[in-house]
Amino acid sequence: MAVDHATVRRIAHLARIKLEDAEVPHLASELNAILAFIEELAAVDIEGVEPMTSVTPMRMKERPDVVTMGNIADEIVANAPATEDHYFVVPKVVE
C-alpha cells in the first residue's frame, strides 16, 4: 500500500498540519518506508485473536457523582493565546 502525494495531502489535512508543496515528495517516501517496515505484519496469523483493549486485566473504577472542580476560569484561560471575558477567542467560525 504505497502512499501517493494526494494521500499525503489528505492525511495532512485530516491531521490539520499545513504542508508546503516541497515537503510532499519527501514525506511520502518517509511514510512509505515506515509502511514498508510494518508491512510484514500482514504475514501474522491473527485468526480468532481478540485485539488488546487493556494491558492490565482490571475493572474500570467509577467516580462518584460529586462536583470537585470549577470556578477556575482564570486558570482555564491562563495559558490561552487569545481570550475575552474568560472566553477563548478564535477566528470566526462560519457554519
Binding site: G70, I72, A73, I76, H86, Y87, F88
Partner: peptide, 11 residues
C-alpha cells in the same frame, strides 16, 4: 459564567 463549569480535564 463563561468557562466557570470547566475542569482541567474539560479544557
Amino acid at each position: 459564567e463563561p468557562n466557570s463549569h470547566v475542569s482541567l480535564v474539560d479544557a
